[in-house]
């Protein structure tokens, strides 16, 4: 087992809203080993992006607040680190790319300038050296005619190209962790596959560990080694990708997997209909004491609605938080 690089322990994040305090993340524990790709899946509003922002130290405070927990990079607790130290970490040791490549680049600076800025900031490179680095990165992320395009502005590029630029920018200082927050959601399907290939390829070459945040089980299957399934700010199931895909235990995970059409099946053959999970994530200010998924769960009973299920290890590295599993284990 590779060495643990990043670990989040018992994290809780709260937000003050008009309707009261919302606990966006509750008792979240995950860990990322060196060179690993960890997938975090869940619907919008389940706390995936907030987990990423917490690791980056970018939770807007106020209205947000870190209520509990620790985030270790090696042996250093990032939640205790000073803002100056966090600025060193961001973009240098932990980088992040975002969902919206169309708007995530500053419109008034050339892309070369924006990539070079990171290298100059963290490695103190001269202007010329930083541009040389930017050029290398653009070549590495597969931008054709990089020596010309380095002077272009974001609006002159397509969405896929911009996401490549974002990746080049994130990897310019060879970070140890790359957080990719829905990196392909806004892109065409063909471009999505290219970006996945690029990320996998770069990971193989540089050994950067990746946290891949997505709502798409298909993307998880393609990218991740391990998967964390989140619902309403909590981890409901955690396992290796094969285990999750072949033996999902939590009804929510099962639902997510059923949402994805199986590409391996013969499309002309009779298929089971695509299913969706009924309902939406409840408002986080109105969670009761029970399992947050209970209102949407076809197996829910009185205990589910009354008590929060404990997290139970059922196999090597496979944990589930569900009364169903708990009772099966007891039986």
């Amino acid at each position: 087992m590779a060495k643990t690089l990043l670990s989040v322990e018992g994290l809780a994040v709260e937000f003050d809203t008009r309707d009261g305090v919302a606990r966006v993340i509750d008792d979240l524990s995950i860990s990322l080993a060196e060179g690993e790709t960890l997938g975090i899946v869940g619907e919008s509003g389940c706390g995936k992006s907030m987990t990423a922002l917490s690791i980056m130290g970018l939770v807007p405070i106020p209205p947000g607040r870190i209520a509990a927990g620790r985030i270790f990079l090696d042996d250093e607790d990032l939640l205790q680190a000073s803002e100056a130290r966090m600025r060193e970490v961001r973009g240098n040791e932990i980088s992040m790319i975002f969902q919206e490549p169309m708007t995530s680049l500053n419109p008034v600076y050339s892309i070369g300038n924006q990539i070079a800025e990171t290298a100059r900031l963290h490695e103190g490179l001269s202007r010329a050296d930083a541009f040389q680095r930017a050029l290398e990165m653009l070549v590495a992320v597969g931008i054709p005619a990089a020596d010309k395009r380095i002077h272009e502005f974001p609006h002159q590029m397509s969405g896929g190209m911009r996401q490549r630029v974002m990746i080049a920018m994130a990897l310019a200082c060879q970070p140890r962790v790359l957080i990719a927050d829905e990196p392909t959601t806004a892109l065409d399907v063909t471009v999505q596959a290219q970006i996945f290939d690029l990320l996998n390829d770069l990971k193989d070459r540089t050994g950067t560990a990746i946290i891949m945040i997505t709502h798409d089980m298909g993307a998880i299957a393609e990218m991740a080694q391990r998967v964390v399934v989140m619902y309403a700010g909590r981890v409901v199931e955690q396992a290796d990708v094969d285990q999750i895909l072949t033996d999902p235990r939590h009804p929510y995970t099962q639902g997510l997997i059923r949402c994805v059409p199986h590409l391996t099946q013969n499309p002309t053959k009779e298929r089971p209909p695509l299913l969706e999970i009924p309902g939406v994530v409840p408002p986080l200010t109105q969670l009761g004491s029970g399992c947050p998924f209970a209102p949407r769960c076809q197996y829910a009973d009185a205990q589910c609605r009354a008590e929060m299920p404990p997290t139970k290890a059922i196999d090597d590295g496979h944990t589930v938080a569900c009364w169903l599993t708990e009772r099966e284990a007891a039986a």
């Binding site: 970018l58 240098n92 980088s95 992040m96 975002f98 995530s104 800025e117 990171t118 900031l121 963290h122």
Partner: peptide
Amino acid sequence: GSDYIRTARAKGLG
């Protein structure tokens, strides 16, 4: 509040 300012923060800029 825009995305590219979030990007700038994620880069570690002050």
